[in-house]
Amino acid sequence: MTKSSDGVFFLTGKDFTNAGSASSNLKGILDDMGIPADIVRRAAIAAFEAEMNAIIYAVAGMMRYSITPEAVTVTLQDMGPGIPDIDLAMKEGYSTAPDYIREMGFGSGMGLPNIKKNTDKLTINSVVGEGTTLEFVIYLQGLSPETSG
């Protein structure tokens, strides 16, 4: 792979019609760049969970992505309530989602654990009342410097 790419998607809180479409588009971009399917899937799943979190909890947010021959990096910055206890939020099954979110198939407390599971590096910075910035990195292992030229 010789190319690099970056860009940004804007997310609107509670816009459930478009929720997930940024991640779906990101998946398309990764596919088009010829990134291995397994890495595309991990990136898409992690991005999707992060995107859903922003849509569910925040007023607005943006998803930036940067794809290089070495890694896929996705940063989700939202204007939301913030996460008071990140360790607790990382626990499988822990959720603060209201019932209507559960009825939509989300808020089962698997989102952050899913992101962690699918990524090589995850950092979360959150300020209660201001918002959360979540960044993950997935390394494109198997792509040697020679082939990435």
């Binding site: 459930f16 929720a19 997930g20 899937r41 898409a44 939509m104």
Partner: peptide, 17 residues
């Protein structure tokens, strides 16, 4: 197999292949 019919189900299917 699901009982949910919103568009996120299709997007989930897409990202999870």
């Amino acid at each position: 197999i699901t009982g949910l019919t919103n568009v996120q189900v299709v997007r989930t299917a897409d990202v999870a292949d």
